[in-house]
């Protein structure tokens, strides 16, 4: 096949992004474990990942730039490079947010906590992790049908976000946990919501990669088609 070397370079790039994704998945897994078990030791393992992930992201971006300069990619190759850069950015951001959350866990070790809020936070962390993992799987397998379902799964994270914010804003009398912990909890809620959004975007990038359409446009066409069928 012509352009065999270029194809190998593209395959290598995708493989690198997937390896990167696996590492971020491990970090998120550690974060969830730390939240479930109030385990500051587990959270401590993730301190410092941010700089490593940023460096990894820059390496991938540099590879993309070199391939664009040397190989003048078009069509599916161009879409792949664009997608790789976009997914890499989501991975770096998710890794950074994960480290922020782990910092909060370490910093608030031993602080009094609100049980209901902590339960909601842990549930939110599990769900956000699941959405992120599924987004990465959708990207790896280019499964555009599942990409459409990811948005619905992210809605659960949004509901937990509202519930958690409500508990933070309206603590029960004598409850609410230590102020420092509650303040950090507000930030964690926001970070978890963003991690889930990054997962949705990673999955959505598979739609662009395969079809050249933005997932929003593809979703709209899908909905319009169903409306037409229902009307018919």
């Amino acid at each position: 096949m012509p352009r065999e070397t270029f194809q190998q370079e593209l395959d290598g790039l995708v493989s690198d992004v997937l390896d990167f994704g696996e590492e971020v998945k491990d970090s998120l897994e550690n974060m969830v474990r730390a939240m479930e078990g109030r385990d500051a030791g587990a959270a401590r393992q993730e301190l410092g990942v941010d700089i490593r992930y940023k460096t990894w992201g820059m390496d991938i971006e540099r590879e993309c730039m070199i391939l664009q300069a040397r190989q003048a990619p078009v069509a599916r190759d161009l879409r792949l490079l664009y997608t790789v850069q976009s997914v890499t950015n989501h991975l770096v951001r998710s890794g950074t947010l994960c480290e922020h959350i782990c910092h909060a866990i370490v910093d608030t070790e031993g602080c009094e906590r609100d049980e209901d809020l902590e339960t909601a936070l842990v549930e939110m962390a599990r769900t956000a992790r699941n959405v992120f993992n599924e987004g990465l799987d959708v990207f790896e397998n280019r499964d555009i049908e599942r990409a459409r379902d990811l948005q619905a799964k992210d809605d659960k994270v949004d509901l937990l976000y509202s519930e958690s914010m409500n508990l933070i804003a309206n603590p029960t009398e004598g409850g609410g946990g230590a102020p420092e912990w509650r303040m950090r909890a507000a930030l964690m809620v926001h970070y978890l919501e963003r991690i889930s959004d990054h997962g949705v975007d990673v999955g959505g990038s598979a739609v662009f990669l395969v079809t050249g359409q933005r997932i929003e446009d593809a979703m709209q066409q899908y909905l319009d088609r169903n409306v037409d069928q229902d009307a018919g």
Binding site: M1, R3, P73, V74, A75, R76, D77, L78, T211, G212
Partner: peptide
């Protein structure tokens, strides 16, 4: 044509996979 052509043969050609 150079970002998202309709036909596979076009995409294979513009991406340099044959020709």
């Amino acid at each position: 044509m150079f970002s998202n052509p309709e036909r596979k043969e076009t995409e294979d050609y513009v991406t340099g996979r044959f020709g």
